[in-house]
Nucleic acid binder design. Structure first.
Lengths: 139, 139
DNA sequence: GTAGACCTTGACGCGGACGTCAAGGCCAGC
DNA sequence: GCTGGCCTTGACGTCCGCGTCAAGGTCTAC
């Protein structure tokens, strides 16, 4: 299939696919006319990338998983390198959550203290904290 | 004092200070020769900015606090606008922590499963792992 | 043979908080 | 007068994951 079809089937954009190829992450073979040609295996790798991105993985960190699939393994995480990334990410997440939790508490008491001398109001959420360890940058 | 001294006393850089001024966040008066001139009050506002940045605040979100100080209030959070930002940030933090915690758990079980099947050298058809919960990433 | 839907590469834009030159002005000390 | 250290205003670079043109090639349908 061509790039447009793959993008549509995976719910992404052709720009993203070209970006992945530029990174050497998801390389396509070329048809005679120069068009990129993808197959079901590529779709599979793409879905792997998307699943990990949803977890907050950076593209580089999805590479071992994609490589693992390309090497013929049954799953993207059927390889040591992938497992290692899982572990690292978990550690980063733990650290990140701990850090945010501490900030949350300090900020909470800060607010409590400030409110002692003040009136009130209201507002709404919208997460955009990003850990230095870089986990769940939301945006 | 001049920009270099302020930067050093606060443990930041002259570039950051110029950046704050460009944003209208920490404006300096000018000496006869065009040099920026700061006083102790400015140092105070700067420290307020730094304290909030350490909490993960964006520069724009520190503005109410700085303005509050500049208006002569005893603390940066002695104003309604600041309190409101506190509340919004707390809500953001809560949402963020909740999101990361969920990701952490999903990732944890993903790892557990991968380790299991990998250790057994077997491959089991795991439920389509494109858990496309459009949580983090782009928005 | 022509419209139009697809594809190609190239390259700039964005957002945040600055880092890092570059070219030049100002001032103290020797 | 000169060196050196401070300061000034630009303005581009960085990191990330693409978005968004732009100019042009390719293929299908009518």
């Amino acid at each position: 299939m061509r790039i447009g079809e793959l993008a549509e089937r995976a719910g992404t954009t052709t720009r993203a696919l070209r970006h992945y190829e530029a990174l050497g992450l998801l390389r396509a073979r070329r048809a005679g006319n120069g068009y990129r040609a993808y197959d079901e295996q590529d779709l599979r790798m793409l879905r792997q990338i998307q699943a990990l991105r949803a977890f907050g993985f950076e593209l580089e960190d999805t590479r071992p998983f994609v490589d693992c699939l390309r090497a013929g393994h049954p799953e993207g995480d059927s390889c040591d390198a992938s497992i290692e990334v899982y572990r690292r990410k978990l550690a980063e997440l733990d650290e990140c959550i701990a850090r945010l939790t501490e900030v949350r508490e300090r900020l909470g008491s800060q607010l409590a203290h400030a409110e002692l001398t003040f009136a009130e109001g209201a507002s709404e959420p919208r997460c955009e904290f990003s850990c230095e360890a870089d986990e769940g940058s939301t945006r």
